[in-house]
Design a binder for these strands. Sequence first.
DNA 1: TCAAGTAGACAATCTGCTTGACCATATAGT
DNA 2: ACTATATGGTCAAGCAGATTGTCTACTTGA
Lengths: 153, 153
Amino acid sequence: MCQTLPVRHDLLDLPVLLLGAATALVDGIDARVRARGFTDIRPAHGYAFVRLAPHGATAVELAEHLGVTKQAAGQMADELVRKGYVERRPHPHDARARLLVLTERGWACTRAADEAADEVLRPWADSLGPDRLATVRAALAGLTTPGRIRPTW
Amino acid sequence: MCQTLPVRHDLLDLPVLLLGAATALVDGIDARVRARGFTDIRPAHGYAFVRLAPHGATAVELAEHLGVTKQAAGQMADELVRKGYVERRPHPHDARARLLVLTERGWACTRAADEAADEVLRPWADSLGPDRLATVRAALAGLTTPGRIRPTW
DNA sequence: TCAAGTAGACAATCTGCTTGACCATATAGT
DNA sequence: ACTATATGGTCAAGCAGATTGTCTACTTGA
């Protein structure tokens, strides 16, 4: 009977479920990446790797991807260079810019993260089955807005 | 061209979708809460409100809920008290402790956040329809692990 | 060729959080 | 009842990640 009034009571648990699932995913991947020996990086660095992996990027491009200032991106780049995951190369078309690219260690870490994500998601996906998985995928795609991946707390 | 390489089993786009959806949700709610006049709080405070709303909580309980130290929780409590969202009361059963409870302004903000969440989720839920929404809800519940809601970046 | 825009480095600062120490109160063991 | 230990909270110092502001080197377009 209460259902005839606001249905929003059903909607309010979704934030908790969605954020809880995102947390479980991030923490699960992080734990497995650490278990593979990459103990000096945090999930935030993974977001940087996502942008750097295909063909590298400049500090400004990285900053836009992460949703931070270019100075903050430059500092993260410093850290990743110091830890051996990234190297700075001269930019082929712009002498002002430097191209940030993954080192072999950076690629190894990226592969470890992919394996970790697979380990976390596979049992979940298997229990859902292909049909429901497709439904979930499409539903999440409908809520996602193009742009940042990391919320501002 | 690159598409012929291994697609990594299709599971690797899920982190992006899931985190993107969580980001869109958090940012969407935050923007609408601000539009309702609560401009001096951040999404992180919302997680505190979730714990304080039912019956209040001590600083230590709040710290456990947020996954931070008791000092950090105490500092957030200070801030929320200063801004008028929370007040400290003597704890009924423990003279050491203080019970943190929402003020009327705190409750108003909580209601605003509920409305904001509804606004963000309703069009999405309507476009899914009840069946697929139930599928998504159950799937997310299967991935969520009980505990924190907020990942460590 | 020259003015405006852009990439990035350097410096100072802010904020949220941590660790460590401490006091007041509660609770359990004898 | 008394004492030892555990717990809630606060104070203080410091750190890490981010910010704003400024500067130089290089690019781009009129």
